[in-house]
């Protein structure tokens, strides 16, 4: 399964070039609201005159999904012979909950019979995927998944199955999550927020710090190698050991899944280690963004400096941005000590 296009919306803008610039630039301060830091996506990023009619009723969640999916499609340069050749897989942890709360506002303010049907239909998890299929004119299989542990990994696994079964020739596969006041409150109360705004992926703490993020990352995945190619996904493991020997390991540690001490064991191999969550923020879907960084590294044969280098365990961190020869990268996510997920991407 080849990665033929990438589209991203995150705190520093839209598009794979913005993301690469951010990786080059390194850590920047998040935005602060009532002393709470978060990597929020600005409203200005979410306007697109060319699409304004088709998505005029879409909420922020759906817009982030549509823009990043469309960008991944454009980035691939693929032209379609049939509208059924693309499958769409959207994964999320929390879905469009801002719209759900807005719908509940209507119930509280106007009563059960006074609510908005538009808000209700946009509050459904699969509204975003529906907008994507409508904008692209795609009639292939379209599915929305939710998971609090491995949403991106499960989406990739399904994309791989669909391509193998020839349900479609390409899959637009990606993740979306948004912030809201409720989410920020819950995280503030339940998690440890980084007071200086810095996520520290390499402290392997049992009580790590986080800085919430939001955004979307989509990938055009193809059974055959396309003109634009970032690399090949050669292995998706939800449990257990990888059979591949990577040149670099990228870890998803971002303070979002609690105890991160299990990352230390898998990181302590002597191989160069990286983690880019301080660029885009803490998210259950953070794997998709690290996967995008890995894809860029393979395509450009470039290693990006880790944005935050705090490293008490003396790991071999990627500490400078430079050209290099990379043939394989393992992207690692650990949510439970008995479940280590590894995605291997090859040049």
């Amino acid at each position: 399964m080849f990665i033929s296009g990438i589209g991203i919306i995150f705190t520093r803008g839209r598009g794979i070039d913005s993301f690469e610039n951010a990786l080059m630039q390194g850590w920047t301060d998040p935005s602060w609201t009532d002393s709470f830091p978060a990597y929020r996506v600005a409203k200005e990023v979410l306007s697109d005159a060319a699409l304004s009619k088709k998505i005029r009723r879409a909420d922020k969640f759906s817009k982030m999904a549509v823009f990043s999916a469309l960008d991944a499609f454009k980035d691939s340069g693929i032209t379609l012979n049939s509208n059924e050749t693309i499958g769409i897989i959207l994964a999320t942890a929390f879905g469009p909950h801002t719209t759900t709360f807005s719908f509940i506002d209507d119930i509280l303010d106007y009563g059960d019979a006074g609510v908005s049907p538009t808000k209700f239909s946009n509050s459904v998890h699969n509204a975003a995927a529906s907008y994507i299929s409508t904008v692209l004119g795609s009639c292939g299989p379209t599915v929305t998944l939710t998971d609090f542990s491995y949403p991106f990994q499960n989406a990739l696994l399904l994309a791989e199955s669909w391509l193998k079964e020839e349900r479609c020739k390409h899959v637009l596969c990606g993740c979306v999550d948004e912030l809201s006041v409720v989410m920020e409150y819950a995280c503030k109360m339940k998690m440890k927020t980084a007071e200086d705004g810095k996520i520290r992926p390499f402290l392997f703490s049992d009580c790590p710090v986080s800085v919430l993020g939001e955004g979307a990352a989509f990938f055009m995945l193809s059974e055959e190698k396309c003109k634009n190619n970032y690399g090949e996904v050669s292995e998706i493991k939800l449990f257990g050991e990888s059979k591949n020997n990577p040149d670099i390991i990228i870890i998803d540690a971002d303070g979002m899944t609690g105890d991160e001490s299990d990352y230390e064991k898998i990181s302590n191999t002597g191989l160069p280690l990286a983690g880019y969550s301080p660029v885009f923020g803490s998210m259950k879907i953070g794997s998709a963004f690290n996967f995008a960084a890995a894809s860029l590294m393979l395509k450009k044969q470039h290693v990006y400096r880790c944005p935050v280098l705090d490293n008490h365990s003396q790991m071999n961190l990627c500490s400078s941005t430079s050209e290099t020869n990379i043939t394989g990268i393992n992207c690692v996510r650990i949510c439970r000590s008995d479940q280590i997920s590894i995605i291997n991407i090859k040049k």
Binding site: H125, N126, T144, L145, D147, N154, L158, S161, W162, E165
Partner: peptide
Amino acid sequence: PSVTVVNACSSGTDAIGIALSWLRS
């Protein structure tokens, strides 16, 4: 693998279809 399908009213049928793909692969 474990994942929850949220495809509105076709969620259950799509979940069964995904299971079929997992088993075949």
